[in-house]
Amino acid sequence: MDSDLVIDVRNMTKRFGGRTVVNAIDMRVKKGEIHGFLGPNGSGKTTFIRMLCGLLKPDAGEGTCLGYDVLRESAMIKRQVGYMTQRFSYYEDLTIEENLDFVARLYHLPNRRQAVAESIEKLGLSARKRQLAGQLSGGWKQRMALAACLIHQPKLLLLDEPTAGVDPKARRDFWEEIHDLAEQGLTFLITTHYMDEAERCHRLAYISYGDLLVTGNASDVIRHAGLTTWLVSGPELNTLARTLRELPGIEQAVAFGETLHVSGADADLIARSIAPFMREPYLWQQVNSGLEDVFIHLMGTSSDNFHS
């Protein structure tokens, strides 16, 4: 076993009823890595994370998490993992301090009071520590939840859409913090829908309807998709977009401010389709595909197992 791997699982599979929600997914995450986990809603990201920390029993699969067997040693895994659930899952009728104290007791922290006080201090929650968690705004709840998952000094953090509904400033601060912690050796698996956040991850995994479609760093992922993207500016782009979408080879024609992103997998086909429009008043320019272009492309090509 490669001791550098914090998560090393193969063939992880989960079915609910007859539906395969996570389909034979492999994942390897190195120590100190921030691993972004992307995919549309209901694609199985949360289910995968829950299997990693023992909240769900995999129907198939094997491997280790923090060196412990994911199937048989979840109790040990739980001690060293911090799991931040998608929905706020601390006690809304407890104050910030009481919530943290509860968690600290559960992990048998020595110098519990001090650990709680430091955690509150570090996350800038001092002024609010006697406020009920239920009365906090989304951003503060998220900070509190992060503080709670960090209090026992876990080695791996599983964060499930930690920044959903949080304002840009708070998101940026949050990611600063994640990078600081990763530098100290913490490993992260983070799900997100935000492309700017995906770009801040060391590596990405894209999952759709239970299937792992692509992994690698952002440029790997973009290269792997082999997408061709053109940027066009000019008047009445909406009309142009509608026309272009009907043409062969054009998978996306999406407005970005004053420009339109036109992309597709087949470079030749797309070139032929846009040729008639490469004239005044339109201005064309081939650009590097962005992550978002790639992900929308991936979403379009994967089959929805609800219908299969």
Binding site: C53, K78, S89, L106
Partner: peptide, 13 residues
């Protein structure tokens, strides 16, 4: 119902 179960289960209890 409040969703706190998920967290409780994720901790070593």
């Amino acid at each position: 119902e409040r969703g706190t179960m998920e967290n409780l289960l994720a901790m070593p209890l």
